[in-house]
Design a protein around this nucleic acid. Structure first.
Lengths: 152, 152
DNA sequence: TATAAGAAGATTGTAAGCAATTTAATAAGG
DNA sequence: CCTTATTAAATTGCTTACAATCTTCTTATA
């Protein structure tokens, strides 16, 4: 005899879901960034936005949205906040006025120096071996439909 | 010569982050639930709350919070909405009035029959082999600090 | 048994997050 | 050209999400 009853509803048990640990884990990991990001006066979403800008210097809302999986409804107010803090500038493109060009300021670039230790600090809190982290990375990007890594 | 420059700031590139695909993947997967959950008039968070209740029938805010990684600031308004829809009841415990007992109603249980196909439908959109899904599940719960699965 | 300490939810304030709609600019087709 | 379609952001409305604080109730302990 089985110890546990099985029914047609087993598929609806939370322990049989893949989506739930994904959802919970994402929130927990983001939470671990918070104390470090607070020091920089950045939220997590602002932080990943700055990551793009630290690397690219200039981009626009559409590209940011595609790379970060966010839409203008999220990005517009977020970018206004980053602008208010003096980390970025926002201006319409001369060639195509629909296009909003986002550019990192000097103050924004200076933030990078203070952020450089954050990934290692948070990484230490995640108890995965390097090989496991690589596996996880690969599986996540497989779900995202980009087999070997992020879109550029 | 290396084709790409390497600097002390490489660790801040988005493609070198594990947290970002986790964050993005979580959102994308939750999004795939939306059309199916809309039919049941449930949001994703309401859905995972109902999962606990379909299985347990009765619980309380504290237990829900621990199992779902949510606090009362999120759960209180969410449970009020589920109550307004008639899917649950909320009442203080007689033994300890601090304790808010949450119980699923008949209407709430009936929802389960309409939800039973959702996991399979969403699962089909996630292009992982069964073995990969198991790996992913294990890695996520390892990060969550619960090696072999969720807390009961 | 008063009083302090602790626990459980509720409330407040801020920031995402996203669907749907709107506005403005550009491109395409007749 | 002029009209239509398309595109890029912005706006609106609603729901999380969470830190911090507050309220109420229970438990410890002096």
């Amino acid at each position: 005899m089985a110890e546990t009853e099985h029914t047609e509803f087993d598929c609806l048990k939370i322990e049989n879901q893949l989506c739930f640990p994904l959802y919970a884990c994402s929130k927990e990991v983001v939470r671990r960034y918070k104390p470090y990001l607070d020091e920089l006066d950045l939220t997590y979403t602002q932080y990943i936005t700055m990551m793009i800008l630290w690397d690219e210097r200039t981009t626009n809302v559409k590209t940011l949205g595609k790379r970060l999986y966010l839409d203008s409804g999220t990005l517009t107010p977020l970018l206004k906040k980053l602008e208010a803090k003096g980390f970025i500038t926002r201006q319409r493109s001369k060639e195509d006025e629909r296009n909003l060009v986002v550019h990192v300021t000097e103050a924004g670039m200076k933030l990078r120096e203070r952020a450089v230790d954050i990934p290692a600090k948070v990484g230490k809190c995640v108890n995965l071996k390097p090989e496991e982290a690589k596996q996880l990375y690969r599986l996540l990007y497989k779900i995202l439909g980009r087999i070997d890594g992020p879109e550029k």
